[in-house]
Design a protein around this nucleic acid. Structure first.
Lengths: 346, 346
DNA sequence: TGTTAGCACTCTTAAATGTTGAGTGCTAAC
DNA sequence: GTTAGCACTCAACATTTAAGAGTGCTAACA
């Protein structure tokens, strides 16, 4: 037994599709002509009345057309929407092309995504969840400065300049390097405890202050891993949709985009969801971010094995073109996987 | 001989100050009461009529008050405005505080600046104009990967992972390192020409492909120096000013902020200006960015000797609080200098 | 019993109209 | 040179009016 019979589904579908196009409440007469089930507007009215009672659509005011409710959108996304067959997107050309830094790749992707969809795009860098030290090196850069280079299992590289009173001789440097590597390699943040640190400093003798600096830098690496970077693009696209562009709402939204911190909650939410590889849709109040209660958010998680994951997301009006968005997200997701398979550099 | 006598100056000053406050066209009666030169509104009207003819103020429409023209603002900034005595700002507490990465310092500063002024703030990282290689190092990170670390005179550090067929033995690595350092140290981008490269590759023998990769990374460093990073904050503040917040204007402006590339032209303009250490004010059309023709832009250049410079800027409505903005910019400028004196790390 | 035509009613939107108030320019008097 | 007074202009706001879209309901029809 289903709550909605075939005809009601068709009508609901027609209402939503029409509303996605126009952004205007849609009336019975429109459906009567627009849809392929030859029914008069009066019949449609009866059905619409039912649909409203069931909570799938609602009227902004008496004697206006109907607009989809959150429940309506949800039904649409879950049941009505057709899966587009993965058409070849033109995104490829934007990509790779010797983009030196990952940062740029991601920013470019966000841009492409925003331009393709006309909504706002966000994307986070992939981040390891449990990171371990893989390689450490101290080098004498000039008379008074030492450079510490740290490489993690995920091939994240971090540098830290350390000032010293005077240059260390080669032998001391070599010893320190060996000491650091043998003591710390393969350890994760949790495994470097006070005991490890004390032992290390003891062995370093008069150079224990250098060890301290290295450990600080190390802490920085793990830290950086936590508060992940979020790249956004097309933030101004929301101004294209009248229902979001009034001063107050737009301001709140744009603020959320600028304060990327807020977006992190979206990422976390997505990560903790049951089906990790799938695509997540938040409609209106479903979103973990209060300011986005008038929007819909679609997110996807890309994964690189070894627990390295990132998130892509699209934020737009509730009447967003879900098919297109989800299609875009899917192809991008697969392409991201491909890119990062090839080059895991920083 | 002056174009404006004392009384006209006073009236112009009063008009502008009042307009800065309210954003509304200001009428003769207002000035008659607001200013301390006891004159009736009729007299003011006559003077205002003169000022309008001279191009310092204008009427949005007949029988509205007057608003300052770009020329009026310019006169205000150049002649009328009082220099505030550098009051101690509360910015200090925001700063340094163990901010690991320069990126964060700058972002924080932009934020503080935006919050202090209620306008939009931008800030660029300091960048060397002529950069030279100071130190190079290749390290074997794991069986198939080599890490190249490059340090420049400005202590910019850049990493690049290089994949190899098989691990190099220690001796080869040492030789390569010596070769690279002796050949490239002290050279700038222009100085590394085809001749240098050919010679280098020849000496590297079977490892010439690794040299290629290192050179690529090197090119990346100099490149990165060119397209400098711009950090912005408070972009949504412009929505607070009705004269900028209508959908079209706001959209164009916000776009300019998002596409940071456009902002670079501001930086270049500022850098090429005659008085390098001073503060630059662009009013309306004076700005090099077309989209900002309804705004004023104030920029300052901070300098660290050795040709390393960055730019701070404020973008707001023409009726911005120039005194406060310039004051803020000045104190921040000096504080930035202080910060970067202490720590030149990446 | 499901479908449809017709009609009265509601409510938004936009255009037309009226009203108010701030501000100006001009003239004449001080 | 300064001021008071007055007629005039114009944006902004409120009010009215008209049009149009859409609904719900009823009654007729297949």
């Amino acid at each position: 037994m289903q709550e909605l019979d075939e005809r009601k589904r068709k009508i609901l579908n027609a209402i939503i599709r029409n509303y996605l196009d126009t952004g205007e409440p849609v009336g019975s007469r429109t459906i009567s002509k627009y849809s392929d089930l030859n029914l008069s507007s009066a019949t449609i009215r009866n059905e619409m009345s039912d649909l409203e009672e069931l909570g799938y659509i609602l009227q902004p005011h008496t004697s206006a057309g109907r607009i989809p409710s959150d429940k309506g959108y949800r039904f649409y996304v879950d049941n009505l929407m057709k899966e587009k067959n993965q058409q070849v997107s033109e995104m490829k050309e934007f990509m790779i092309e010797h983009t030196e830094r990952m940062e740029q790749v991601l920013q470019q992707m966000a841009k492409a995504l925003a331009e393709n969809t006309n909504y706002t795009a966000m994307i986070t860098a992939p981040s390891y969840h449990r990171n371990k030290v893989k390689f450490l090196q101290l080098s004498q850069v000039d008379k008074e400065q030492l450079l510490a280079v740290i490489v993690t299992e995920g091939n994240l590289v971090k540098n830290k300049m350390i000032s010293t009173r005077e240059a260390l001789d080669n032998e001391t440097l070599l010893k320190l390097n060996i000491l650091l590597n043998t003591s710390l390699n393969g350890l994760s943040a949790e495994q470097i405890n006070l005991g490890t640190i004390a032992r290390l400093k003891e062995q370093a003798g008069i150079h224990s202050n250098i060890v301290s600096d290295v450990l600080d830098a190390l802490a920085g690496v793990f830290q950086e891993d936590e508060d992940l970077e979020v790249y956004t693009s097309g933030t101004t696209n929301i101004l294209k949709y009248p229902e979001l562009s009034d001063s107050r709402k737009a301001s709140e939204l744009l603020n959320a985009f600028e304060e990327k911190k807020q977006l992190v909650s979206l990422v976390n939410e997505t990560l903790s969801s049951e089906e990790q590889t799938g695509i997540q849709v938040y409609i209106g109040d479903e979103s973990p971010i209060q300011n986005m209660k008038d929007c819909s958010v679609v997110t996807a998680t890309y994964q690189l094995g070894e627990g390295m994951t990132g998130t892509i997301g699209i934020i737009g009006p509730k009447r967003m073109d879900y098919e297109n968005v989800m299609d875009n997200l899917k192809t991008l997701k697969s392409q991201l996987d491909a890119v990062f398979q090839n080059k895991k550099e920083n």
